[in-house]
Amino acid sequence: MSTSEAEWVLLKKVQQMDFVVVELTLYTDTHPNDEEARKQWRDAIKEAARVRRQYETIYGPLSLTSVPSKQAIEVGWQWNSPPWPWQR
């Protein structure tokens, strides 16, 4: 697996976990009293953050709210470097 392929796979994992959060957020917007769903939503956010950290440690931050890892800085990561999402 090439680096860019490995990155694509890990990014997809981030996308999957973030998508679960998107779905549960909309659900809890209209189901504020579904305690089980609210718990799942909190767990999903934690899980998404965990997978995101995994990605960002290697490839650098996906947003300006993440702290750049030493590893990412060392390989020359910059916010401004390509590829941008539509270029991948």
Binding site: W8, Q15, F19, V22, L62, S63, L64, W84, P85
Partner: peptide, 12 residues
């Protein structure tokens, strides 16, 4: 808003 440097879905 904060920009996320990724797509919602992996477009190909």
């Amino acid at each position: 808003w904060v920009y996320e440097k990724k797509l919602l879905y992996p477009v190909e």
